[in-house]
Design a protein around this nucleic acid. Sequence first.
DNA 1: CGTTTGCTTGAAGGTCTTCAAATGTCGTGG
DNA 2: CCACGACATTTGAAGACCTTCAAGCAAACG
Lengths: 196, 196
Amino acid sequence: MGEMMEMESDEKYARLFGIDDQHWNTVREMLVVKKIKKHEFLLKEGTGCNYLGFVKQGALRTFYVDEKGKDASFLLQIDNDFFGDYESMMLEKPSRLNIQALEDTEVWIWTKEEMEALFKSDIYWMGYGRTVALKVFLDAKRRLEYLFYFTPEQRYIDLLQNRPDIFQVIPQKYISSYLGISAQSLSRIRKRISVN
Amino acid sequence: MGEMMEMESDEKYARLFGIDDQHWNTVREMLVVKKIKKHEFLLKEGTGCNYLGFVKQGALRTFYVDEKGKDASFLLQIDNDFFGDYESMMLEKPSRLNIQALEDTEVWIWTKEEMEALFKSDIYWMGYGRTVALKVFLDAKRRLEYLFYFTPEQRYIDLLQNRPDIFQVIPQKYISSYLGISAQSLSRIRKRISVN
DNA sequence: CGTTTGCTTGAAGGTCTTCAAATGTCGTGG
DNA sequence: CCACGACATTTGAAGACCTTCAAGCAAACG
C-alpha cells in the first residue's frame, strides 16, 4: 500500500516535470530536498539563481523591489509549482528577483550544473532541454496575455476560478500585488463582486 | 565593394539570428524570401503558423481580435525584428494571432520543417534550438515586465526612447494599442508630455 | 476633389491611485 | 488564557488617468 502510493506519487511528479517514467528516476535522484521556514529567502536579488526549483509543499512569493522600496509580487507559487529565475540561470547573471517563503515550505532544487550535464548526455535529454525552455516560455506568454487583455477585476475573477487554492494560503496583499493593483483596490473589487 | 557590403550584411544577419559565421550559410539557404503588399496577411487566426519569420525590410503588426471585433496589437515588427507565433509552431496548433503588413514588406520565412530537420542534424544545431527557445522566452519576459511595472505613460516614453524608428513608420492608433491604451489616450499623453 | 482614414479634443463616467483612519485577525509574552 | 502590539483588511475622500461616445479637423488616396 505504501509502495503503491509512492508509485502514484512518482508518476504525478514525472508528469509535472514532463518526463517519461523510464527517465524520471534519473532526475529524481538529482533533486535536492530543501526545507525552509516562513519568511526565509530562497533567492535574494543581486545573487545568481543557478537552479530550477519546484514547490513540494508550501507557498512562495517571487517579487521585485523598486527604487522606492516598494515591492511587487511577480509570481506566487504553491504546491506543485515551479520557481526560480530562468533568465538568471541561463545567462548566468545576477537576478533582480527575490523569492521568499510565505510559510514553512519544502522544495526540490535541481541545479543548473547537474541539469546541463544531463542535457548533454543523450538525445532524449537534449530534447527535454528544449521542452523546458518551451514550458518556461509558455508560462510567460500566458501571464503576458493575462495582463494585456484582462482588467484587474477580470484577472481577480479568473484567479478565483482557476487557482482558488491560492486564496487559502496567500495573504490578500500579495495577491493584489500579483494582480497588478493595490491592496485597497482588491478589497473594493471583492466588495463590488460580492454585492452582485 | 558590392561584395564587401554583402559580407557585412551577412555578418549582421548571422548576429541577429545568433548563429556563428561558419553556420550562417546553412540557414541562409533555407530562408525563403517573401514579398507582401501593404494590408496583406502573413497569418490569419485559426491557421497554423509553421515558420519563424524575420522582417528584412518593412513593417508588420501582430494582433488579436476579440469577440466584439475589436483588435489589440500584441506586437509591432519592423526591419530586423522576428515575427510569427512560436507557440502555434511548437505545439502545432492553430494560432489566435493575425499578422498583417502595414506597408510593402520583405520577409524571410524559415519553415518549421527545415528548422527541425536541421536541429536534429548535429550537436551545434541542437544547442541552437535551445538558444532560439531562450531568445523567444526573453522577449516575452521583457514585454511582461514592461506591462507589469510601467504605466502607459512610462511605456510610451520608453518606446519613444528605445524604438523611435517605430514612430516613423507605424500609425499612432496601432502604437496605442501596443501600449495597451486607446488611441485617444495616447493622443492625450503626447499632449501632456509636450507641454512639460 | 470628395471620401476615407487618422488624429485631436471635449464631456461624462468609471476604476485606479494615495493618504488616512477604523476595524479585524493573529501570535506572543506576561 | 488574555491583552497587547503588529500586521492585514476595509472604508472614506480626493485626485489622476483611463474609457467611450461624439464631433471637428487634417492628411492621404483614389
